[in-house]
């Protein structure tokens, strides 16, 4: 597994831990009624799990194991993958901070954080697809072997 894929997968594991930490807090709060305001973390939990964990893990594994782009450049344009990684993680972290602030104290700061987060996460999806799309293909085989898929 090469360096970029390792970054994706390790980050995904950290988000998995974070998501279930938030889930535990939400469930404990539900059981013991610590503070009603903690309920604002529900959206944070969903997105830590689905964006931080699921999407990022799938992205990392796909970058690692999808068929090579060419023999010379097996991973295609790695810059797109790094740009997607930064955009996804910064976007998600801004949301993790901005969502509770927006729910509890709406204002220009929270709205700004959410707007930047939205733009970065959408950009991350497009960039990741930009790197993966050319690698969704049959594997490269020597001409004599034919294309078995």
């Amino acid at each position: 597994m090469y360096r970029q894929a390792r970054f994706y997968v390790r980050s995904a594991l950290i988000y998995l831990l974070a998501a279930f930490t938030v889930a535990a807090v939400l469930l404990l709060n539900q059981a013991f009624g610590w503070d009603g305001r903690l309920g604002v973390l529900q959206y944070v939990f969903y997105h830590l799990l689905m964006v931080g964990w699921a999407t990022q893990l799938i992205g990392g594994v796909a970058l690692w194991m999808f068929p090579p782009f060419t023999r010379e450049r097996p991973r295609g344009n790695e810059t797109l993958g790094w740009a997607a990684y930064v955009a996804l993680n910064v976007g998600l972290l801004l949301r993790v901070v901005g969502e509770p602030i927006h729910a509890l104290q709406p204002g220009a700061l929270a709205s700004g954080l959410l707007a930047i987060s939205a733009v970065l996460q959408v950009a991350a999806a497009w960039l990741l697809v930009g790197q993966l799309w050319p690698r969704v293909r049959q594997r490269i085989t020597p001409p004599s072997e034919g294309r078995r898929g």
Binding site: S111, V122, L132, V136
Partner: peptide
């Protein structure tokens, strides 16, 4: 299927981005 899933990824994230922008403003 993988290409279709990548299309749904960008469409779904774009719709999600619009929803989040709508939440902000």
């Amino acid at each position: 299927m993988i290409r279709a899933s990548l299309i749904w990824l960008v469409v779904g994230y774009t719709v999600g981005g619009l929803l989040l922008l709508h939440k902000a403003w």
